[in-house]
Design a protein around this nucleic acid. Structure first.
Lengths: 327, 327
DNA sequence: TCCTGTTTTGAAATCTATTTCATATCATAG
DNA sequence: CTATGATATGAAATAGATTTCAAAACAGGA
């Protein structure tokens, strides 16, 4: 069942049917005749034929590191809620935490399969930047700030500065930070910079070195907490780059009989349900992941409609949710 | 840059280039010439033109209720890991918990945009069944058992039967169950049937009515736990249909000074990290969501390769993870 | 009635790759 | 040296829509 058959059944030309589908000039009688035939036959134009001719796919590619993570899937929900409303579909590219595949996917999307790309990246190399700039379709990056590239990101620096400051204001004097690999600029560098600046500004320069590097797992949080405490003696505040790392640290602290928050205050980042169910409940920096996804989608659609608009950066705020772990 | 230009540059016909791309008959010299031109120009065939001609898109549509949920995103990860290996892409359709959109998406996918569909459904009506059967592309359903339709699901009945039985074996005599709406056959009906049969088989018929209906939120778990306990007096075991509901119940129990597991044993289902961080840690029925996604994808690919194979049902097992809440 | 301008209409060209078909080339067997 | 079969090749048809173009139909004004 194609447009020619519909045309024949309705007694019109294929052009007329196409006009019907795309609201061009058409008399009422023909409109009605075509409508009837389409309804009877259940005809649907082939998406690929349309895409081939119009060079529009109404599809957005999303490149992400791992779909089964709280933050990523929340961002996705935000992206989808905006795109869906505008009739766009999402083509998913999950790198399963293999950054080398990010560029493969970005390259793969360059065959006009998608109208644009949302890139939830982790590690950004020079090649990333180069490919982002030469991409034929517009790209919006989520979670990382990149000069000259449209992006939506969180204010990692100030979030961790504020949280650290909150701890020193409460009188903490021996602090530690558990972060991520520095290749990840947002999570690895900005957050620890926030921590370091805050302890310095509080006159505690000597605490700026109390840093351990974990990955995003509970397990590594437990391990690294041990290393950090063994290396730098008892602390009275531990700032973690993510909730899962903080949960790992909490498990270690409990196992050692170190009380939270009496002996040591503990903080995370994320704001998932997790924070509300630990004992003690976990103080955390809440990011608005759905928001960031929605913003990224809106930004991308804006660029699609008006390709001339220059790159735009959107920095999103955060909220510190104080729970029992820092009372 | 299209196949004709590449052909001209390489001094061959478009057919030769197409044969190069699809490994047809081709002499070594031409192969080499074409390879060189493609490398220099960075040419990539247009996916849509190929799809139009071949009627194959190498794309699978996935319809799901809500991407930012632990179980769903885990299933997605499993689906993707299999599809990606076989060069397939995923087109996402998130209904945002609006079952009426499920059929719209299923219908929308019928325009040959995808080669097949994976359907992570919730409520299945007669119209669902009808549309699944008349779909032009193969469909695999995840999470629900449907006669005559290819599906991958968990053994909800026995999982909850076993868990309930475990509690009665520990000596519990006053039990309660917190489930979901019966429209959801797997979660709503099968699980509660498992509970009911188990208490009956343990000679505790009178406990079969101690049932509350929650949705999937922590909040509703808290509310419904209150209602259940107020209605049916003190209990010594509470079986919950999901971990989040169990966490809500736990919060309520704590607030009332009811001790877990001393006064009441508590169980959930899911097996997310959540279970390991509550106090007490939560006994749960672990499902293997990634597995179910991977199985569904494999099943779908199998049907794509061999369209004649009859519908197949895959029932997956579960593991009871005993934690502190039932010690 | 003729002219002008607007609205309708369909034939044909177009988008880009694949596939069929007919033919050409080549090696090997007889 | 011809017959046979395998291998190689390109012209043309094809997939199903949109868009351009030229022309037809029609209304209103002079």
């Amino acid at each position: 069942m194609n447009i020619a058959e519909i045309a024949k059944l309705a007694g019109v030309s294929p052009s007329a049917v196409s006009r019907y589908l795309n609201q061009g000039y058409l008399s009422q009688e023909k409109k009605e005749a075509i409508r009837k035939v389409i309804e009877e036959t259940g005809y649907r134009p082939l998406a690929h034929a349309q895409a081939l001719r119009t060079r529009k796919t109404k599809t957005i590619g999303v490149i992400l590191p791992k779909i089964d993570s709280f933050s990523i899937s929340s961002i996705m929900a935000g992206i989808d809620s905006v795109l869906e409303r505008r009739g766009f579909q999402i083509l998913l590219a999950d790198t399963h935490n293999d950054p080398s595949r990010e560029l493969d996917y970005l390259d793969g999307f360059d065959d006009q399969r998608v109208d644009g790309v949302i890139f939830i990246g982790t590690v950004f190399t020079a090649r990333h930047i180069a490919m982002l700039k030469k991409s034929r379709v517009p790209v919006v990056v989520v979670g990382q700030q990149l000069a000259g590239v449209s992006c939506v990101y969180h204010d990692d620096y100030h979030a961790f500065y504020d949280m650290t400051r909150l701890m020193t204001d409460k009188g903490c004097r021996r602090l530690g930070y558990m972060g991520a690999l520095p290749q990840d600029k947002a999570v690895g560098q900005e957050r620890s910079r926030g921590y370091c600046d805050a302890v310095r500004d509080a006159g505690l320069e000597d605490q700026a070195g109390h840093i351990a590097v974990a990955d995003f797992s509970v397990f590594s949080g437990r391990e690294k907490a041990r290393e950090l405490l063994e290396a730098y003696g008892p602390l009275d505040a531990l700032i973690c780059a993510t909730d899962s790392v903080a949960v790992g640290a909490l498990q270690y602290l409990k196992s050692q009989g170190i009380r939270v928050p009496e002996d040591i205050r503990l903080t995370g980042q994320g704001g998932a349900d997790l924070c509300g169910v630990t004992t003690p409940t976990l103080t955390t920096i809440r990011y608005f992941y759905e928001d960031s996804g929605a913003n990224a989608a809106a930004l991308l659609l804006e660029r699609l409609e008006n390709p001339e608009t220059p790159a735009k950066e959107i920095k999103l705020g955060y909220t510190i949710v104080e729970n029992e772990s820092t009372q």
